[in-house]
Structures are given as structure tokens and as C-alpha cells.
Nucleic acid binder design. Sequence first.
DNA 1: AACCTCTGTCATCGC
DNA 2: CAGCGATGACAGAGG
Length: 647
Amino acid sequence: MKLPKPWWASGGLLHLRLLLSLVGLRVDLDLCLLPPVAALWEELLPFFPTRPASASNPFSASEGWGRTPLLPAKGRLLHEVRALGVPFIPRTLVDAWLVHSVATGDADGTHGLLGTAASSAVGDGGQSASAGGGDPGEAHSSPLAAEEEEEEKAAEPTAQVPDAGGRGSQETEVLSEKSEAVDHSSQQKENEEGVSAQATSRQQRKREENKMTGASAWEAEKIVEARNESHLHWSDTSFSLEDLFQLLSSQPEHSLEGISVEDIPPFLSSVCESVNPSVHNINLNQAISHDVNLHEAMLLCSNTSIRDPSARPSQAQEPFLQLNSPTSPQQAIPAMSLPLANNQMRNLTSQDLLYDLDSNIFDGLNLMSLATGFSPLEVSQLFEEPDSGVSLNSSYNSTSLTNSNCTFDGTNLGAVGGCYPEPRKHCHVDHRTISGFHGALECHQVFHDHTYHLQSGVPEATSETFTWTGKSQKISGCLDDPDRNLSRDEERAKAMHIPFSVDEIVHMPVDSFNSMLSRYYLTDSQVSLIRDIRRRGKNKVAAQNCRKRKLDIILNLEDDICNLQAKKEALKSEQTQWNKAINTMRQKLYDLYHNVLNRLRDDQGRPVNPSHYALQYSHDGTILIVPKELVSSGHKKEVPKVKRERN
DNA sequence: AACCTCTGTCATCGC
DNA sequence: CAGCGATGACAGAGG
């Protein structure tokens, strides 16, 4: 029978990963332990593009999607385990391997990953799993004998789906490596050659199966061990789609049961509902059939009602990269609405603000992604919840630095040229009152006029009329009073019979002043006094302007303090919201963790006690299911890699 | 009387 | 070099 082109060769594995992510099983568990996955496969399979038309049941071996000889290995392994009297009856190949390796005390090399310490651990786990029980009503009465029979049948030659350079070749290689001692690379190279490789692998498998049936028990055990080893290698690579089918088909009591979306772990549902509480039905079919990326798929439930995915096709792809992009921060967080306007985001702290936020928040996201096994992209979706209160686009009404016009250069200050601050004439500013401000948030926008009017030619701007405080007011009020108290210079000028007023002397232009001195006959003392009066007068105005500028600088600095404090408060509020979101995510992670562990079943269908097993995330991206005793006893490095998935 | 603020003045610097 | 503005420092007036 000519088999169709393996559809996983054209992106099927991506669909697999997408599906696993959708069902919240990014952690690569032993999938045969998870009946809902099989159910989900059954439901989602029609949406894969090149699914063979004849394969109405992908789990059926008769359609060419049959099981590999891995399953007989499992059967024999189970048989051995049962013969060893291990109380914990494994339901999966991995469990069988674990129990077998422990019970046989093979603690070295590949088999001894658990170590001797694992013996009691697994035993306890098995007992506790039996004792811990869970729901006895869910107990599956799956006789091992029937399973073994089925697996023995599965030892028959089955057509291996060719997969040029794919996982099929790896399996073929695995199956034949013990009997033929074929080099991996050469085998893979052969498989890449197409039909000839397919025929070769088939012949090798036949030979091995013949060996399996005809070999002695010792040989069979060696083969089992070899397969266990190869299974480790195989699991080191990844979990192929066909393997999934085979494992699922090895447990017919699970493969066809309970096909419903409800079997999907609640993680995705919670995510979608959190994004849009009104949307309760997850359109998984749409998510899959559209061949969307994971980000969009997880947002489909909300995109249909909230956003138009086509409106921002690029935003959904690399939000984190865009977020760190200094060019378009408003695009960086399209769905988030932090309480800062986009322009203010640029104006205020700009990239530093975003960087600080990113380093805190998205480090947290990345950490969470590490902890959960979800990508930061997926984790980030949780923060797009509209009810999270985290908003990047919501307007943040604060006085910005740009409005403060904190420019202290001489041009804006108007210092050069001797300008008076016009508003100061009409608005008496009590600096002590303003200085009493200690960063209260109710600080107002202060418009400081830094322009100082020219003194020259402006008689009202003289020292006598300048209404600053105290003495100046007294002086200005006595301008036209002949009995007013004269200033010292006025008194001196009056005593020296200077024919000009002090105001004229001070504010007269230099040329006019010089010509005036030349036109009148004046003694040297008079000229000296006139020059001193002019000098002191000008210096007095200059001192006033200087003090005014100094005051304005102080006021501007206080405004800056006010603005910065307001921003600080806003950032604190923002941080609080992010912390809430992180806590929400942490709780979801906790729930997901227990949800995954609760889906594990022992041989009697009872849930595995989550208190005895743990998901261990290693640095290389693998996720291990290990007994907690091993984790706590510090044998992490000896823990066998039950399953792994590489992102 | 002590303290503070305001103002004027001087000395100095830089343009 | 003179003129001028800016500014620190000081002193006196006034509160």
C-alpha cells in the first residue's frame, strides 16, 4: 500500500507543538498517560492539511500508521516488571523502564539513571499511587495481558512511513541499531535516500522482529534493554507524531474515549476567558486550521471579538522584540495600556523607562516562561488581559518635563540684556511658601516667565518703581513725594548739585551719557559721583535680575521634583499592577502544574499523587517527571530523562 | 537679641 | 582697554 506523504513533514510537527501548547501540555509528559490528548488528537486531526484520506483512524495500525516495535518492547518490559514483583505497575513504556531499571538494580549507565536510591522512591510512589488512590471510580481495568497481546501483535511488520531526514528515519535507526549495529549517521543518510532507505529499514525491522520472536529470553532482554536505550535516545531527540499515534493506539481504552474540548486542560480556557470573559467557547478548530502561530492561536478567542488580527500582523509575532525597540514603543506593547501616553513614554523616561520596566517585568516573564515551559510569548498573553488593569495606552495626565521648559540657558532666561520678569510685577511670589512644598502630588503647572524686560528706556523699570518687597515698595511709593526719603546716591547727587536725576544717570545710554557729561561742565568729583551712581544703579538692577533668575531656577527645580515624584508614583502603581499580574500567572502555573500531575494515571486508573512526583525543568529545556524523593535527595543529575521536549 | 529675608553694594570675572 | 552684565559675598535695614 502506497502511503501518502507524511504530513508531519510539511509542518505537522509544528502543529503538534502548537496543539500541545494549546492543550497546556507544553511539558512533554508521557503522552500515553493523557487520554485527553488522544481525544484531542482525534478531534483536531481532520484539520491537518495532508492527512491521508484513508486514515479515518490515525491510531489504527491497519492503515499504515501502525505502531513501531517499541510497543512489544514495552510489553516485554511490563512482563519483566510484573515478574519482578514490583508493586507499582507501570502503564507506560517510560514507567516500565523506570521500574525495570530500579527493580533490576541496574543503576549504572543508561539504566541506572535513577540510581539505587530510586528503588524505594518508585516503590513508594507506586504504593502511594495505589494507596493515594484518587477516584476509584475512574479506575481503568486494563489488563496487562490484553495489552501484552496487543503489543505482541504490534510486533508484526508494519509499513514505516518514509520521512526524509525526519523522525521516521530516527525510529528506523533506533529499531535496527541493536541487531544491525548500524551507525546512526550512516543509517540516517540511507534513509534520506528515499525509497531504498525505506526498503532497507523495513528489512531491518523484519530481521529484528524475527529475532525478537525467535531469540532466547536472554537475547530478548538484551533487545529490550537496547530498545530502552534507544528509547532514551529517541526521547532525547523529540516526540514524533507517529510515536504519539503509536502510544495512543497502544491503549485503545484511552484513544477513543471522551472526545471533547472539555478535556483540554483548563489553562487555555482560563487564558481565553481572562482575555475576554465573555468568550467561553474556544474555537480550537479555527486556531488550528488557520495555521496561525502560537501567539495568534492563543489569542483567537479574543481576537475575534476584540481585535482584528490582520490589523497588526507583525505585532503578534515579536512583541518582545518590538517592546525593546526604541523606535516604536507604542507598537511595542500594542495590546497593553500602561498609564502613560505614548508620547509621554518617549518624552519622560523614554527607553530608560521601558528598559527598567522590561528588565523587571519581562525578566519575570522569561523566568516564568522558564519555569512553566511556556514561551515568553505565551506568558505575555496573560498580561494582555484587559482586566489586569495594566495599561500602556491609558492617558497619564502628568506634567511633563517638556512643559516645564526647564531651559536655563541665557536666551530663555533673558538674563543678558537686563530684562525684568513682567509677571513678577503683578504676582508677588512668596518663595518660602513654594519652598514649603515637599513633593505633594497636587503640585500645579507653574509657568515661569524667564524674560526680563530691558531696563534701558523703560523708566518704570527703575529701581524706584520695581515692586519687589519692602524697601523697594517704599521707594516706589515715594517717587513723586517731595518729602520722600532719598536714596544715598540721590542724596549725594543732591549734595553735589548734579544736574541729572539718578534715574537718568543710570538708564541713559552710554553714548548719551558720555555726550551729556561732555556738554556740561562738571568737576571731577561730580563726574566720579555720576559714574558711581550709574555703576551702582546698573549693578543694583543686575543684582535684582540675578536674584530673580536664581529664584526661577529654584522654582523650576521644584517643578522638576514635583514631576518626577508624580512619575515615580505612577511607576509604583504600574509596578503594583505588574506584580498582581505576575502573581496571577504564578497561581495559574501552580494550577497547571497540579492539573498536569493529576492527569497521570497508574495502572488502575487512579491519579498519581502529585505529592510524589514533580516536573523538573532543566537548563537545556527539557522537562522531567521525577519522583519528588529524587528531587529532594539531590540526585537530580542521576534522574533519567523520561521525556523531553526541545523548543 | 538672635535670626531671617530683602536689598544694595562691592569685587570680580568673562564677554 | 573700557564698558557692561553676571554673580558671589558682604552689610544694613527691617520684620
